[in-house]
Design a protein around this nucleic acid. Structure first.
Length: 864
RNA sequence: GCCGGGGUGGCGAAACUGGCAGACGCAGCGGACUUAAAAUCCGCGGCCUCCCAAAGAGGCGUGUGGGUUCGAUUCCCGCCCCCGGCACCA
């Protein structure tokens, strides 16, 4: 039995390495940085996790991406902050409590414990000292503190509003949380409710949030576009159409119809240039004037029934499909302030109450919606824009609206102007005459943050009969979330059922008062957690501006694209608030954003309910964490969606074992090798060239392109080459004969080249497979671990080849390859190419018209 | 409808600035080692044609039809399909 010989070369046993090095990193506190102004910083962050219980490989992919970036930057001399935390408040824990009776606090911390273990078993290099959970008073105190600062500045305010209410989750949803008219979480159709709500005035920053997008050059175009659409800026004008003599309507002209009684209808339009074609005015069913007009209509009951029908359509039918354009005449007329003509006022089901002024001027000739409406109800159509080089079409000939710009016609003094010029001039004219003004309209709305739920940050406000709404003074923060023991899932806010919480004293008069019983949307928590990481244990401040200045902004941020709007726009908003409070001095929180793709199993997103989750722990048990890490990085670029494959994981394990054998094979011999000498033979030079070319490729792929898959490919190529080199130089590849560890080689040069190659390989594989790399690094005789090691340096001269193979094309077809010295001149390359037998055969009997030499790349011969 | 991103072997993918399409890996096939298997090591591999076969040679090939160019997966124009976002936003 030859067992002893077989085990001369140590077997790759990843599970032992995982344990050993994870322990070592924890013992030496290897990843806990402190501020160091002498070194460049790198703040690497992955979106923190909701502690659902178990992380699957889809979640874990994101953490590995960040870890590769963090570990690489550390070796490249950066002071790296790579923290992790828990988005620990939220509905699922509370819903589970209603079902199972387990208190959210208990389940949440239990889940955190388990998931933290999973991440540690993956060897992610987190600064665990800075770990935070948003459900702790140490964290949410600062949510409350910030809320009060916003309240003081008018950025947090309370108003009664129609809100999106989820009848299943029993809570209000922000506009961003309503997807196709349904709750983003449970999919139930959303209903409308009127409630007193707290809002954050994100619209105050609408223009800044839009303009800031232009500075985000390292964000995916997709996300920038989604945010632009979401903010939805449009330039236009507000114009007032006075109502024609009506006893109900008073003389006061209100700019926004804050009162139900006004003497004019204000519309918002982006096409004031078409106002001579405005032949009627449309009101949203929600418009305040609608109810005012109702009483005066011929049949008020029928009128109101119509309007009610339109309002019901709004949320449900309108979302699900095309709703016929319908309207009802109010019996009233308004004056087109440009033509002076009287136009009828209708209520239309397709006009939105919450956008603009809730009223539009209808220009059927130049707006498709108005066109359809006019045709349905036989309202007049008037063409006021024509093409620049032809006559304008007649209204009768139109089959659809013409919405593009052109030249103004049928518009009195404005005839002949191009549309854009007309818009500017007519807006100015409206302003001069006091009937309107230019304005910018946003689609973005203020952020309603009140939630009628338990498991969230209490809103730190108090209601006093005498003094009204009062903020809780800073020295009484945090307003602690009381321990609710019974979760029924019925009624409004669970906190309203805790008298000792509700009943308090007014901070101003000391008299009896009631606390706000709603909690904050959990997106508040996640809007600034990256700031807190810079100073996670600060008990006196949300974070120190000095520490924040050192670490922020986040240099590299990665997470799922599903947060492209919600989290990423709220965080940009909060950053501006902190800036205006003097806490930070940058505008944008995340310099670079990477949106990682999901991991699918059987073509579907992994989820517990579908029963198709891949548990990283099971994979680690079988193949070790390094193989899992490497596979997930190798399978595709980080942005791509990928299908999970057990076979692929096994392939990555094989590669690591191959690296292990290679290094082990040479380790004993290369210990004696010195620096690489100048006079190498061809094989040695080629191996060295491959080493340095790989350094270049891997460095660029990780740092510049985040193409982590091709970085791994390059390492595989290097390993393949080194196996062949081993075979050539010492006979027999590593692993071919298990006991064939090299003890010496014929040439010292060989050992020096191999040592350089193998060390570079171990260093470069370490971000992907840190446990194995640490062990091999130690095995190669290095002390102090990889945390202290430097990334290999690229030597461009060593990477350059002495000879290169140049393909030769004849009339665009590849016909030959010639080998030339890499520094050969253009003439030499041309001569060599034209002398090649295969080339001669193809040009025989033909005329060479042209020879193009692309230096170092290719020769192209044109013949006829 | 508008905006953004895509379409490359059996599969995941690569091709950096217009220059050898398919690197690297998975699955597959062949060889070495072994009594045998596993593991390991080495090799083959887009499609088609010529050839008994091999070697070799040639043709076609990056969704599709054009264009620019000595040369196009890459640039331009038209079309088809897929994914994501927004969607009666005046």
């Amino acid at each position: 039995m030859a067992w002893s010989i077989i085990f001369d070369v140590a077997e790759y046993r990843p599970q032992e390495l995982d344990r050993k090095w994870q322990q070592r990193w924890a013992d030496t506190r290897a990843f806990e940085p402190t501020e160091d102004p002498t070194r460049p910083k790198f703040y690497c962050l992955e979106m923190f996790a909701y502690p659902s219980g178990h992380a699957h490989v889809g979640h874990v992919r994101n953490y590995i991406i960040g870890d590769v970036m963090a570990r690489t930057r550390r070796m490249r001399g950066f002071n790296v902050l790579h923290p992790f935390g828990w988005d620990a408040f939220g509905l699922p824990a509370e819903n589970a409590a209603i079902k199972s009776g387990i208190h959210p606090e208990v389940s949440t911390f239990g889940n955190i414990e388990h998931m933290k273990g999973q991440l540690k078993r993956l060897g992610i290099s987190y600064a665990w000292d800075r770990e935070l959970a948003t459900c702790t008073p140490e964290y949410y105190k600062w949510n409350q503190w910030l809320f009060i600062r916003m309240y003081e500045r008018g950025l947090a305010y309370r108003r009664r509003s129609t809100v999106n209410w989820c009848p299943v989750d029993l809570t209000v949803l922000a506009n961003e949380q309503v997807v196709d008219g349904a709750c983003w979480r449970c999919g139930t159709a959303v209903v409308q409710r009127d409630l007193e709500q707290w809002f954050l005035k994100i619209t105050h920053y609408a223009d800044q949030l839009l303009q800031g997008l232009d500075t985000l050059t390292k964000w995916p175009e997709k996300v920038l576009t989604m945010q632009r659409n979401w903010i939805g800026r449009s330039e236009g004008a507000r114009v007032r159409f006075p109502l024609v003599g009506d006893p109900v309507v008073g003389p006061n002209v209100g700019p926004n119809f804050s009162s139900a009684i006004a003497a004019a209808i204000e519309v918002f339009t982006t096409r004031i240039d078409t106002i001579y074609g405005a032949t009627f005015v449309l009101l949203a069913p929600e418009h305040p004037l609608v109810e005012t007009f109702a009483a005066g209509t011929a049949d008020p009951k029928a009128f109101r029934a119509q309007v009610t029908k339109f309002r019901m359509q709004d949320r449900t039918a309108r979302m699900s499909g095309d709703v016929e354009k319908e309207g009802v005449f109010t019996g009233h007329y308004a004056v087109n302030p440009f033509t002076g003509g009287q136009v009828p006022v209708w209520v239309a089901n397709f006009v939105l109450g919450e956008y603009g002024t809730g009223a539009v001027m209808a220009v059927p000739a130049h707006d498709q919606r108005d066109f359809e409406f006019a045709r349905t109800y036989a309202l007049p159509i008037r063409v006021v824009v024509g093409p620049a080089d032809a006559d304008a079409p007649s209204a009768e000939s139109l089959t659809e609206a013409v919405s593009n710009d052109g030249v103004i016609v049928n518009s009195g003094p404005w005839d002949g102007l191009p549309s854009d010029e007309a818009r500017t001039k007519m807006t100015a004219d409206a302003r001069t005459r006091g009937i309107g003004e230019g304005t910018v309209q946003f689609r973005l709305k203020d952020w309603g943050i009140s939630r009628q739920r338990y498991w969230g940050t209490p809103i730190p406000m108090v209601y006093c009969d005498k003094d009204g709404v009062q903020a809780v003074p800073d020295d009484q923060l945090p307003v602690l979330l009381p321990k609710v023991t019974e979760f029924t899932g019925r009624g409004d806010s669970p906190l309203a059922q805790v008298p000792e919480f509700v009943n308090t004293t007014c901070p101003r008069c000391g008299g009896p008062a009631r606390r706000e019983t709603d909690t904050m949307d959990t997106f508040v928590d996640s809007s600034w957690y990256f700031d807190r990481f810079t100073d996670a244990t600060n008990a006196l401040q949300a974070f120190s501006p000095v520490k924040a200045k050192y670490w922020l902004p986040v240099d590299f941020y990665s997470g799922g694209v599903e947060h492209a709007i919600l989290h990423l726009i709220y965080s940009r908003f909060f950053t501006r608030v902190f800036r205006d409070l003097g806490m930070v001095d940058h505008d944008e929180p995340f310099t670079q954003l990477l949106t990682q793709g999901m991991v699918l199993k059987d073509g579907k997103v992994m989820s517990k309910s579908k029963g198709n989750v891949v548990d990283p722990d099971q994979m680690i048990q079988k193949y070790g964490s390094d193989a899992l890490r490497l596979y997930v990085m190798f399978v595709a670029p980080p942005e791509n969606e990928v299908e999970w494959s057990d076979a692929g994981l096994e392939g990555s394990f094989r590669f690591l074992a191959r690296v292990w054998r290679l290094v082990d094979h040479w380790a004993a011999a290369v210990g004696e090798a010195g620096p690489v000498p100048a006079d190498l033979n061809d094989a040695e030079r080629a191996a060295r060239r491959k080493t340095h070319d790989t350094i270049r490729r891997v460095t660029m792929d990780i740092e510049e392109r985040q193409h982590l898959n091709t970085a791994v490919s390059a390492l595989m190529e290097l390993v393949n080459d080194l196996y062949a080199f081993s075979d050539q130089t010492v006979g027999g590849s590593p692993g071919q004969h298990a006991a064939s560890a090299v003890t010496t080689a014929e040439r010292l040069e060989t050992l020096a080249v191999v040592r350089e190659a193998v060390e570079a390989l171990v260093l470069m594989v370490s971000p992907f497979a840190p446990h194995m790399a640490e062990e091999l690094w130690e095995h190669l005789g290095h002390q102090g671990g990889l945390t202290a090691a430097a990334w290999p340096a690229h030597d461009a001269a060593a990477a350059r080849a002495a000879e290169i193979v140049v393909p030769v094309q004849i009339n665009g077809k590849l016909r030959a390859r010639v080998t030339v010295p890499s520094e050969a001149s253009e003439d030499e390359v041309r001569a060599k190419a034209l002398a090649d037998p295969a080339v001669l055969a193809h040009i025989a009997g033909k005329t060479v018209k042209k020879v193009i030499v692309a230096q170092g790349k290719l020769v192209s011969v044109v013949v006829s």
